[in-house]
Write a protein that binds this DNA or RNA. Structure first.
Lengths: 245, 245
DNA sequence: CTCCTTAAGAGTCATCCTGACTATAAAGGT
DNA sequence: ACCTTTATAGTCAGGATGACTCTTAAGGAG
């Protein structure tokens, strides 16, 4: 069988049309908790339920472009801000009955954002809010599954990439970076060991000149760092206890 | 915006229908080389070019079911054999112009098969063949990209999962397992160190009772092993030289 | 039959990385 | 003045790894 032939010969409309959507698992760390951006659905099915933001891919868009467009619409972030965000394709969800209305294939993305702005309630959603991970009830469609997959994926990528800096503002302390790991993994890490690991990995972070940040927090003021150029972590920074599949 | 509303209100047919296909990067290790299952396209576009096997997702199928069905059709493997194969969703390719005929979104899968049967030339493809990785010319559509992504993904997963056993027959020697790593990574590994790592990782492999395999090869006969129950490798078995992104 | 080649398998050793831990410095709160 | 909190420096033992050496057991060439 050739790769792209329709079931009944070549005719673009000889088969059931699929709708293609994107769904976004937008994660952030706020006040030492992992938060997810959710929208409240305004219509059936699942009216009143929380769902991941997302929407249809337009005729001339790639899925990633659609994801960035939807993200800007939902969060009120500027287009240039959204353009720089870490956005990664997670997986595509294709179960025939995942949407009761019609056949919808959804390309899911994960986005990591630093210290997030409060989303505008506007747009087309009834409301869009940052919800602490796990405190939402059941989400619409298969979005529970998507969100769980996103969490697992992000947790795994923290191990062997420098992705954690995507949760941080441009300049951050090592304490804030450690907080990202602790929050996503749900564990406590040893401060000195974490520091040693980050600082001895070439290109993970780079020190920022100037005085320590004058923060309102307690304790000794911390030095500031920027994300370094590296993307991969060798050797990785493994989760304690070994990672169960 | 609610998650699944059509651009112009709710009407399943109010937007351009997308075709949804699956493409398969089926990899195997044969004669110390990585091979890919490719089909020769019988019609335009790209008639005469090699392409990844694949095809349209049928109305009541998930993408994974479609992938298994196509794989059975292309390779002539029995349904039960295909059911047990390692099949993993790789990524979805959605560039608007990736297929010149129409808007086609393709969900790509990676499959790993042990010592492969020669595919039947039958089916609908002009021919289906195992081709040594890299010796094919340019593939049709964006299949070069898909294949490269599959290679990279498999190489990465060998590091931190027990996936390598999916390339091996039910009973295999440590030399065969090492050959998988060497072939996919394109490096040579130290025999004793590889052996130590595999044997000290709980659940990676389990020894098979009985005499060593009477093989036609030279050298001391090797003991046989089966895949153990473990799926993750902790700590991972990292590629030499550090992995560039 | 004997030597050579090949690969399996056992073992050594130094180095690097990590986890656990102690200690000091510098801020805010009471 | 203390106490709490956090950053930062440093130590130390054990595990994992990379680079080796050595022995064992097969096939092939002469």
């Amino acid at each position: 069988m050739t790769s792209h032939r329709a079931p009944e010969g070549y005719d673009p409309y000889a088969f059931v049309p699929f709708a293609v959507t994107v769904d976004l698992a937008v994660l952030t760390v706020r006040e030492e908790r992992l938060h997810v951006l959710l929208v409240e659905r305004g219509q059936e099915p699942y009216a009143g339920s929380w769902a991941l933001p997302g929407g249809f891919v337009l005729p001339q868009e790639s899925a990633e472009r659609a994801a960035r467009r939807e993200l800007a619409e939902e969060t009120g972030l500027s287009g240039t801000t959204v353009a720089g965000l870490h956005l990664e394709q997670l997986r595509t969800y294709t179960e025939p009955d995942r949407d009761p209305r019609m056949r919808v294939v959804s390309v899911a993305f994960t986005a990591l954002v630093p210290d997030p702005p409060e989303p505008r309630g506007g747009g087309d959603a009834a409301q869009a809010r940052w919800i602490p991970y796990g405190t939402h009830g059941r989400l619409a469609f298969d979005h529970d599954r998507i969100l769980a997959d996103a969490h697992e994926r992000v947790g795994a990528k923290l191990e062997y990439t420098c992705l954690a800096t995507a949760f941080c503002p441009p300049e951050f302390t090592l304490g804030e970076l450690r907080q990202v790991y602790e929050t996503v993994w749900g564990v406590e890490l040893d401060r000195p060991n974490f520091r040693r690991k980050v600082l001895t990995t070439p290109g993970f972070v780079q020190a920022v000149e100037g005085p320590p940040r004058l923060t309102g927090g307690r304790g000794k003021p911390a030095a500031l760092y920027r994300a370094g150029g590296a993307t991969a972590l060798h050797p990785p920074l493994l989760r304690p206890e070994g990672r169960p599949a």
